[in-house]
Amino acid sequence: MILCVGLATVDLVYRVDRVPGVDEKAQALSAEVAAGGPAANAAVTAAALGAPVTLVTAIGAHPLGGLIRSDLEKRSVRLIDAAEGSDGLPPISTVVVEDATGRRTIVSRNAGDLAYRVPETGLPDADLTLVDGHHPVLAVAAARAARRLVVDAGTWRPVFADILPHADVVACSAAFHHPDGFTAPDVIVTHGPDPVTWTRDGRVERIPVPPVDAADTAGAGDAFHGALAFALHSGAPMRDAITSAIRVAGVRVRHPGPRSWLDQL
């Protein structure tokens, strides 16, 4: 089983001819609602590829949280809600995608300073755990308990100082910068359409990213992490796992919308 621990949001996704400026309005070409967030999107990807997946996150009892629950259930992701009974708003993101280029603009209110404890039942046993650094208490607990830990290091958060020492694999975006530097057995850095770099034992390999016509880049990194977790969970060697994750991320960006691309896997 793969355990994903981190952020789940309500994503409101609009596709527009162009992103409006200040005091401008735009009529959306389409609008969709889905669960979002790095851990949730990775969980959905891994489940779509065929792995049993559990997501530990914080949603609560607010009616909008039902949108997240419904999407995750439809995608065969088991949910453990550390905010069960809370009536506050769940994290919400508005994603605006430019139709001609697939580039996206995101406005979000994520977990903020809210802290949720590990559920009384504890965290489930998993062969591989992925954490994204959101919900720090949950993330640190999961990192310490993990048999094999993959860290989604999109942007620096102080909690990573407590998580990274437990990591087997750190998958970073090019924007990730640890203020003091770090080491891990395997460090992977994505650079958008440019080659992915993989560092092990001081050796760096550049793995090419095939060119694609991008229709929607939102969640491409999350898809990469979910596919990477799936491949490693399935026993693939690291280079093969990275290549597979690149392929899945390429499928993601070629298709508009938060979920339609999953049918192409």
Rank of each mutant, 00 (worst) to 15 (best):
R15Q: 13
T217Y: 10
V95L: 02
V5D: 03
A249V: 02
G36K: 07
V118P: 02
R104Y: 09
V44N: 08
L49W: 07
A171Q: 00
V159W: 11
A82K: 00
W261C: 07
H233L: 15
S76D: 12
Q264S: 14
F230K: 03
L55S: 07
D216T: 05
S93I: 03
S93N: 02
P258W: 12
A51L: 00
A42P: 04
R117N: 13
T217L: 15
D263E: 15
F224W: 07
T217K: 10
T9Q: 09
S86K: 10
V107I: 13
G122D: 12
G219A: 04
R69M: 00
P208N: 07
R259W: 08
P211K: 12
D99L: 05
L123K: 07
V253D: 08
E24T: 06
I163Y: 02
A214Y: 00
R117L: 15
D152V: 07
V189M: 03
V53A: 03
A115Q: 14
A215L: 10
A145V: 04
V159E: 11
T197P: 00
V22R: 15
S86F: 11
A184D: 11
G235N: 12
D81V: 01
A171W: 01
T183F: 02
V16L: 13
I68T: 07
T45R: 08
